[in-house]
Design a protein around this nucleic acid. Structure first.
Length: 614
DNA sequence: GGATATGTTGACGGC
DNA sequence: GGCCGTCAACATATC
């Protein structure tokens, strides 16, 4: 729609003289939809109209004939912006409100991604996940090309990079998606300050999660919900998640250009694994290519299975199927290649008019678990640590390097490691085939089923090895393609019965649990070929097999494959008692359930009384 | 403020 | 194969 300035003025005049009674009260009356003449004609959002009107401090009385010349001028003059949209997570064009905000009234757009040295310094990232990131960036660049733009990959610390870019590109506006992780918050606050110093407007939009985590916390009296049911109650008071916004098209870029020169490929190109100091020969099989395009295809593929989607119950899916029994959309959601809101509303469409499963076990339920942990991570200080974490039971975990290595290191002869020689590989392992197979799949493929994560996490912590969940957290952080700070910490807290989940006497058996869905042990044989000749009877407990069976299987336990490092029946019983003691200490003298809490209650009561008396 | 219901997904034995 | 009770007994939310 092309509207010239005169026509624009006429439309606005009509609107103001009939509806608009001056004063800021009228802003609340501006309808949000496209039928609103102000929004339609000016191409501004309600928020932007509000900002502009606030800026000029319009006076109370309308001019002659109900015309407000200053208002008109302010709203019809299209300021031109030079925007940076900063991609961090949210590596996508669809449902990216901050990117759309960057494009509004913009004549020069620089979409950037920053290779921030903080990450490799402070976070372990496997070569598999680097590959996923690179592919996602490459796909993002391709998708930007389609709308006549490009991705600039900038190398350096954000706080040092931005002042240079602001000057170099004469930037007036910076947009990005809200991120609630501790480092992100600190980094973004710093960048916001720098932007202010350079007169750069900052626009932040919530689009990583279904809901604004800070709002959820506020609605729950300033505390993140500690149970799923509580979260659901709070969310139902807020209402359904916002609908996703459409991907920008070349129409959005009509009056806007991205200045790209061929020489920029050198400076701002997509990095290679080598540039990132990664060894491509260590890559596992290429099962889950990164990127928005792949994410949307994968979503389509799974959402076509209407019956499967409607019947989906997470606990009924198999941790040890030979191909994933769930969608494996998690890496795509983690990097923001797929919008959680798009996923959510797609499910709404499929569920409509059909009988379907419900949270917490349904696919909607899975997205809500993500909200649960994001909210907890946003609202609980030291969420990824035991000490200083108010939600976390303080447990006297052991330090046991030998056990930890046995759990975390790669099994010999794993499919992704066949090129390596025995001496290249750490030789430690737990001796429980189910546990070792899962850890092998994790290390080589970068994804394991949620219940498989339960099995190995319980084994490392409260079940068998009595090693701190923080150690497991580090290993998952490195190896999982979908490693997401809040979800990783939250799930480790859960599995170790340190927070959210407290029935610590329910322990996963490293033998029995896998048998339920894979009697023959095909999963074990796939990831631990050394055990492939064992009969089903002994595949979960090869150490119990007679010598003759081991010889026939060409695998002597204790020589070719280790004996179990612990006796599960013994240590799990002992560990339950240790957990019991840790919980007793918590409710005894130094936990939140203790006298200090009682004091808090009293204090609240006295404050209430104080106000009553007044 | 004490009692009660509930909590995504345990293992095991018996029917 | 599915359902049930037992094992031993946790925290949180709600009334």
């Amino acid at each position: 729609m092309v509207v010239d300035d005169e026509e624009k003025a006429n439309i606005l005049n009509t609107f103001f003289s009939t509806v608009f009674t001056v004063e800021n009260e009228m802003l609340g009356e501006i309808p949000r939809n496209n039928e609103n003449p102000i929004l339609r004609v000016t191409n501004l959002t309600q928020e932007e109209v509000r900002n502009r009107l606030n800026k000029i401090k319009i006076d109370k009385s309308p001019g002659p004939d109900g015309i407000h010349p200053r208002v008109l001028r302010e709203l019809t003059t299209m300021p031109t912006h030079r925007s940076i949209h900063w991609f961090r997570k949210g590596l996508r064009l669809h449902d990216n409100p901050a990117l759309l905000a960057a494009m509004r009234d913009c004549d020069e757009l620089h979409p950037i991604f920053i290779l921030d040295p903080w990450f490799p310094k402070n976070m372990r990232v496997s070569v598999n996940r680097w590959r996923f990131l690179i592919e996602s960036l490459r796909d993002l660049d391709e998708n930007l090309k389609r709308i006549n733009s490009r991705l600039f990959v900038v190398r350096g610390k954000p706080a040092e990079v931005f002042p240079q870019l602001f000057k170099k590109w004469k930037v007036t506006r910076l947009t990005f998606e809200v991120d609630t992780e501790p480092y992100s918050r600190q980094r973004d606050a710093e960048v916001e300050k720098l932007a202010a110093e350079h007169n750069v407007e900052v626009i932040q939009k919530v689009s990583n999660t279904l809901y604004d985590a800070d709002r959820v916390i506020a609605e729950n009296n300033g505390k993140p919900p500690l149970t799923y049911v509580r979260l659901q109650t709070v969310l139902s008071s807020i209402g359904a998640p916002k609908r996703p916004c459409p991907a920008p098209t070349d129409e959005n870029m009509r009056d806007c250009r991205t200045p790209w020169k061929s020489s920029y490929e050198e400076i701002y190109g997509i990095p290679t694994l080598e540039e990132l100091g990664q060894d491509p020969s260590k890559l596992g099989p290429h099962l889950y290519p990164g990127g928005e395009s792949e994410a949307l295809q994968r979503l389509d593929l799974h959402m076509r299975r209407t019956v499967w989607v409607c019947n989906f119950k997470k606990p009924d899916t198999e941790p040890n199927s030979l191909t994933p029994s769930t969608t494996v959309l998690s890496p795509y959601v983690k990097f923001g290649c797929l919008s959680a809101r798009v996923f959510y509303w797609r499910l709404v469409e499929i569920y409509r008019g059909r009988k379907h499963s419900s949270p917490p076990v349904s696919l909607h339920g899975q997205l809500l678990w993500r909200e649960f942990y994001y909210t907890a991570g946003a609202g609980i200080p030291n969420f990824d640590k035991m000490v200083g974490n108010s939600a976390c039971v303080q447990v006297d975990w052991d330090e046991n390097k030998e056990y930890l290595e046995a759990w975390r290191e790669c099994q010999l002869m794993c499919p992704g490691c066949l090129v390596m020689t025995v001496s290249d590989l750490p030789q430690a392992r737990t001796g429980f085939p189910f546990i070792d197979a899962i850890m092998t799949q994790l290390r080589t493929e970068g994804w394991i089923h949620h219940l498989a994560r339960h099995a190995v996490a319980c084994f490392l912590t409260r079940g068998d090895l009595w090693i701190s969940w923080e150690e497991g957290q580090k290993v998952f952080e490195e190896l999982l393609l979908d490693a997401d700070w809040s979800l990783n910490a939250g799930n480790w807290l859960w599995l170790s019965a340190s927070a959210f989940f407290h029935r610590f006497f329910r322990v996963y058996s490293p033998v029995a649990f896998g048998k339920k869905t894979d009697k023959n042990g095909d999963y074990i044989k796939k990831y631990l070929p050394i055990l492939r000749k064992f009969p089903a009877e002994y595949i979960y407990e090869p150490w119990k097999s007679p010598r003759s069976v081991q010889e026939r299987a060409s695998c002597i336990i204790g020589k070719d494959y280790p004996k179990p490092i612990v006796e599960h029946e013994t240590v799990s019983k002992r560990n339950i008692q240790r957990m019991k003691a840790a919980y007793a200490r918590r409710s005894g003298k130094d936990g939140p359930q203790s006298p200090s809490k009682k004091k808090g209650v009293k204090r609240t009561a006295s404050v209430a009384e104080f106000f009553k008396k007044k």
